[in-house]
Simulated assay, not measured.
Amino acid sequence: MDSPADLGSLGVLEALLFASEAPLSLERIEEILDGCSRAEVSRLLVDLQDKCRQQDRGVVVSEVAGGYRLVTKPEAAPWIQRLRGSKPVRLSRAALETLALIAYKQPITKPEVEAIRGVMVDGVLKTLVERNLVRILGRKPEVGRPILYGTSRTFLEYFGFKDLSELPILKEIEALIPNAAEKAALCEEVEHTGQTE
């Protein structure tokens, strides 16, 4: 097999990231580019990231969900929306609140989410599972064996996180909320869920 250098290594890597439906891990890229070491793959990724950062490029290399993928630059969003003929699907406030609880408290059961939110979450939880943002992790070993929920790889991709350690901490969330009443309510809710940083 030809080496990636013979074929234009950056071009091959760019094509792989473009064609892949999911983020590609370093291991998978190394496997595909038979003969390239991990160090060479890492160097190629850095080179491609640098090239994509140029102002006239419409895509960037993003490290997300344990791998790498090509994503469009935020500045291109209006044209992409025009191409697709619709605005991106947004999550409701209820869905975001439920998803945040699951992300910070996982594994967590539906009754635990409902106890914190104070409302039923059947429909919201069903939607999050259907969109593959939340997945079933198993059952809690207690009476009734309730289902345990956690976030999925799609969740990481949707929000652009490499892993769960990139979830914002309480201080970062506070800085984003200008309204003092909303900030106090959110801080109280987050502290209630055990997020204390």
Rank of each mutant, 00 (worst) to 15 (best):
A94L: 07
Q106R: 13
K110R: 15
S92D: 02
A94V: 07
M120Q: 04
Q106T: 08
L91E: 01
E114C: 03
E112M: 13
R117I: 12
V113I: 15
V121R: 08
T109I: 10
L96K: 13
L91D: 03
V119R: 12
Y104H: 13
I102V: 15
I108G: 04
V121S: 03
I108K: 04
S86M: 13
E97G: 03
V121Y: 00
S92P: 03
K87G: 02
I116C: 12
T109K: 09
E97V: 03
I102Q: 02
L99D: 06
S86L: 11
E97S: 02
P88G: 06
Y104P: 03
V89N: 02
I102H: 10
L99F: 11
L91Q: 01
K105T: 11
T98S: 06
Q106D: 08
G85I: 10
A103G: 10
E112C: 02
K110A: 14
V113R: 03
R90N: 08
A103Y: 05
M120R: 11
P111N: 10
A100Y: 01
E97W: 01
A95D: 02
G85R: 11
M120W: 00
T109Y: 09
S92I: 02
G85V: 06
S86E: 15
V89L: 09
Y104S: 06
K105Y: 03
R93V: 12
I102F: 09
T109P: 08
P107K: 12
M120T: 07
K87W: 11
E112I: 06
T98V: 07
A100E: 08
M120D: 03
E114W: 09
L91T: 01
P111R: 11
P107C: 12
E114S: 04
S86P: 00
A115G: 07
M120H: 03
I116H: 15
I116E: 13
P111A: 07
L99A: 02
L96E: 13
T98C: 13
T109W: 08
K105R: 15
T109G: 00
A103I: 07
E112V: 09
L99W: 10
E114H: 04
L101A: 12
V113P: 02
R93G: 02
G118F: 11
I116T: 15
A100I: 04
V119L: 01
A94P: 00
A115D: 10
P88A: 03
E97K: 08
P111V: 10
Y104D: 07
K87F: 13
A95E: 15
A115W: 01
E97L: 11
A115Q: 12
A100C: 14
R93T: 11
A115C: 00
K87E: 14
A100F: 09
I102W: 09
A103E: 06
T98L: 04
L99C: 04
M120S: 03
G118N: 13
R90V: 08
L96Q: 14
Q106G: 10
V113N: 01
E114V: 05
L101T: 12
L99I: 11
P107A: 13
T109A: 06
R90A: 15
K105P: 00
A94N: 02
V121W: 00
P88W: 03
I116F: 12
V89M: 05
S86N: 13
T98W: 00
S92V: 05
R117G: 00
V89G: 04
A94W: 06
S86R: 15
I108N: 07
K87N: 14
T98R: 02
Y104Q: 04
L99H: 08
S92Q: 01
A103F: 09
V89F: 05
I116Q: 13
V89Y: 04
K105V: 09
A100R: 10
P88E: 08
